[in-house]
Design a protein around this nucleic acid. Structure first.
Lengths: 205, 205
DNA sequence: CATGAAATAGAACGGTCGTGCTATTTTGGA
DNA sequence: TCCAAAATAGCACGACCGTTCTATTTCATG
C-alpha cells in the first residue's frame, strides 16, 4: 500500500542522516524509531533485519550521490567543464545540510573496510562505479584536447578523491575554515599538471 | 606495583590494535578482557571508566606515531630528505602489522569528528601537532633551497595528508594493490610542483 | 460505511553493555 | 617467611540491543 512505502522512505532517509554522523553500526533501531516517531516494532516491520535497513540506507546514499553529483556533471559539456562540475558538486555534497555528518561514503568506508560482508561489497561497488565515471570524464577531456594525451585517467580520479578526502578531514575534524580554499587550490594544481588550461573563474566552454 | 603497569600497558596496546579495526566506540570491555585473558572486572580495575581507557589508547597511538614516523624523520638531514623520510615512514605506518585496521587516526577522525568531548579534542590536538611538524619541515626545505621560496608550507602539509588519506581509502576499502604506487606518484608530483627537484633513485626524462 | 488488509503498537525474550561491590588470589618488600 | 597492598575474579545491577509474537489501530476500497 501507499502509506507503507512513504514511511519506509522516511525511515531510510532519517537513518541516512543519522548514519552520516554515527555510522551504520551506530544506527540503533530504537533511536531511529524515536527520531521518526514510531515504535521499535512498528519500524522494524518495514525491514527483515537491521542489516536490511543498513543496505537500504547504503542504496539511498548512492542514489542521492548520483542525483546530486554524477548526473549534474554529465549534463555539462564534455571535457574540463564536466570535470570541474563534478568536483564542485562533490565539494558541495560534503556539506549537504541533510547529511549532518558529511559524506556518508567516507564514514562508511572507514567503518566497513575491515568488515567483510554485503555492506562492504555494496559500498565498494558504488565507489568503483563513480570513480570509473570520473576517470571516464578524464579520458573524455583527453580526447577533447583539454588534458594531456599521456595522462593516467585512473590516477587522475585517485587524485581527485584524494583532495575530497583531505577536505573532509580538515573541515570536519580540524574545523579548518580554509579547507575549501585549500581543496580548490589543490584541484587547480591537479588540473594544470593534467594539462588543463589554468582557467580561473570567468571563462566557459 | 610493577605488575599492574605491565598489564595496563598490555591492555592499552591490545585495545589499540582492536580500535584500529573497530573504532573506539566499537571497543568493548568484555572483548578486550577476553583478548588479554582477564575478567571484565579485573580489566576494568585498571581504568576509571571506558572513556579513560579510550583516552589512554589515543595517547598510546600518538606516542607510537611519534616513535615510528615523526622522530625518525627528524633524524634525517634537513630539507627534502627529511620530507621524503616523513612521507615514507608515514606510508609504512599505514600498513603496520600491529595495527590491523590501518592508521587509527584516520579511523578515529571519522568516528570522532561529530562527537565533541575530550576524545575529539585529544585527537585534533595531536593531528595539529604533527601537521605543524610537517609544515615546519617544509619551511626548512624552503630555507635550504630545496623548495620554492613562495611555497605555502601549510598547504604542502595538507597535500601530503591528502595523499595518505587516499592511500588509506584505496588500499583498504577498494583493495587496490596499485595504491602505494599511486600515492608515490602523487607525492613526486607534489614535490616537483613544490620546487623539489630530483627523483633520487631512478630516472626520468 | 463496512471490511479485510496493511500499518503500527506493546510486551517480552535472551544477550551484552558499562560499572559498581565484595571476595579471593597474587605480589614484592620486611 | 609473612603480610599488607595490589591485582584479579565473581556476581549483580539497570539499561539498551535486535528480534519475535500478538493485539490493536489505520487505511484503501468494494
Amino acid at each position: 500500500m501507499r502509506k507503507g512505502e512513504e514511511t519506509r522512505a522516511e525511515i531510510v532517509s532519517k537513518s541516512l542522516a543519522m548514519a552520516s554522523t554515527l555510522g551504520l553500526g551506530g544506527l540503533t533501531i530504537g533511536a531511529v524509531a524515536k527520531a521518526v516517531g514510531l515504535s521499535k516494532s512498528g519500524l522494524f516491520a518495514h525491514f527483515e533485519s537491521k542489516e536490511d535497513l543498513q543496505l537500504q540506507v547504503l542504496r539511498a546514499a548512492g542514489d542521492r550521490f548520483v542525483d546530486r553529483v554524477v548526473a549534474p556533471a554529465l549534463r555539462r559539456p564534455r571535457g574540463e567543464p564536466r570535470i570541474r562540475a563534478f568536483f564542485e558538486s562533490w565539494l558541495e555534497w560534503e556539506d549537504a545540510k541533510d547529511l549532518p555528518g558529511g559524506c556518508p561514503f567516507i564514514a562508511l568506508a572507514i567503518e566497513l573496510d575491515d568488515q567483510p560482508g554485503p555492506l562492504r561489497d555494496a559500498l565498494a561497488a558504488s565507489q568503483r562505479d563513480w570513480l570509473d565515471a570520473l576517470a571516464t570524464a578524464g579520458r573524455i577531456a583527453m580526447a577533447e584536447g583539454h588534458f594531456r594525451d599521456d595522462l593516467d585517467a585512473d590516477q587522475f580520479a585517485y587524485d581527485c578523491y584524494s583532495i575530497i578526502l583531505a577536505y573532509h578531514h580538515f573541515s570536519r575534524l580540524l574545523r579548518d575554515d580554509r579547507a575549501g580554499e585549500r581543496a580548490r587550490r589543490s584541484f587547480e594544481a591537479l588540473l594544470s599538471q593534467s594539462g588543463g588550461g589554468a582557467v580561473p573563474s570567468g571563462s566557459r566552454a
